[in-house]
Write a protein that binds this DNA or RNA. Structure first.
Lengths: 238, 238
DNA sequence: ATCCAAAGGACTGATGCTGGCCCATTGAAC
DNA sequence: GTTCAATGGGCCAGCATCAGTCCTTTGGAT
């Protein structure tokens, strides 16, 4: 009698997809792409970052070196020096075919992000959290025609929603799934119409969360996600 | 201007919590604890497992050795030999205080598992999937007073629900969160009353999924999870 | 003008993990 | 009874990664 095949795939998956160097590059890229580290901003010092990422300074430096070469960051020596996110970011390399995992990504995103919205609305938010959320919302609606910048602020709003759900693991999961979704979005054009829709939907979501209405928050998020899901399916699958 | 503090914590978290050996032990233990590898069953061969886990055979063997020493598995040499899950599993070591992450775990679990139930109900299941789900349901209701065995079958049912949601990443996430929940459950007693309640709730969940009713599936799962959440909060927090 | 603290840059020895190779054991098939 | 294939057991050279240490650059404080 051998192990049950169904669940085995989920558990006997690779323990480590990438090595420490690659993971580190990925993590930094993720921070830049999601807008957590905005253009021009300074990253933490190498010693600090290495400690936070649980990686040796050598490995971190190799990763930073790769990002410098690729044009994502710049390093300056001396006191008040550091590593800075480039003011003008390189455009991401063209992605290969998204393949089977389109539905995988969309399914997981719906579960995580709608769940986060509901969980956030179910809590009693502190004033700081309410401000954080509102600020992120205003940021998104305040972009003039820079597609890349819009996508970063959009990600930051969605991350902020996950944050106020007050589950660190959930925030992490949302950050990961957004990175995957963004990779797919990079392959398709962003239309002004979509942005207008999104802005209105963002407002509904945040309103529902601030009002403490979990059902409405979930529903608003569902609607919002359905929009981009349809967009992605249309461009990538049709 | 430094990086935005909120999201930074989610992204600048450790790249690797544990080393390859520890991760491997954890993965195998997870498979055993969740009942994916049931007592007496044979694990895949070392060469096969090492490949699936993306780890060298040396590392895998070290991990297996640790599990042999701990009494979780037994190895037999020769053709038709292999590594077998022990027939009587050791009881898990007493856990330290669960601490802050109780709410973290419970929040994420609700998001993932209720989301999985809804996603599963939203699909049109194949006959094989319907059978898989039904079989897992019958398995759970068919346990006589063996607490550990009950928990394994319970986990397998919940995993089966995630599987029929047809998102590999979601299945993985559910497996991980269940491992964390089970660690907490190990610290508290399981009452017969709870089992009866659970059986009825399991039936409602599966019924809703088979009927293709996402709203009912989510609601049933929410109710089910609320039960154990309350139990855990009561025992661990009060 | 000098000093100094904070940052990046560079090196080294120790350790973990890998990939490959061969040996030892077992039970079925012939 | 011999053979053979599949499996666990063990070993080793090489590479990745780590922790620690020291050097270099820079600009504000004195």
């Amino acid at each position: 009698m051998a192990v049950h095949e169904g669940g085995a795939a989920a558990l006997f998956r690779p323990v480590r997809t990438r090595n420490a160097f690659e993971e580190t590059v990925g993590r930094l890229l993720q921070a830049i792409r999601l807008g957590v580290a905005a253009p021009g901003e300074k990253l933490p010092s190498e010693r600090d970052l290495a400690a936070r990422l649980g990686v040796s300074r050598v490995t971190l430096r190799d990763a930073i070196r790769a990002l410098v070469d690729a044009g994502y960051v710049e390093s300056r020596r001396g006191r008040y020096g550091g590593t800075f996110v480039a003011v003008t970011l390189p455009s991401p390399p063209p992605r290969p075919a998204p393949g089977d995992d389109l539905e995988d990504v969309l399914t997981l995103r719906r579960v995580l992000e709608s769940g986060a919205a509901e969980a956030a609305a179910a809590r009693t938010l502190t004033p700081a959290e309410r401000r954080h959320l509102t600020a992120a919302l205003l940021d998104v609606s305040d972009v003039d025609t820079d597609e890349a910048e819009y996508r970063r602020r959009d990600s930051r709003l969605h991350l902020a929603i996950a944050e106020v759900a007050a589950s660190a693991s959930l925030t992490t999961a949302v950050a990961d799934i957004r990175t995957r979704v963004n990779e797919l979005l990079d392959a398709i054009p962003l239309l002004a119409v979509n942005i207008e829709h999104s802005d209105a939907q963002h407002r509904s979501i945040v309103d529902a969360i601030l009002a403490g209405n979990p059902v409405a928050a979930r529903q608003a998020m569902d609607e919002h996600l359905d929009g981009t899901s349809a967009l992605l399916r249309g461009f990538l699958c049709g």
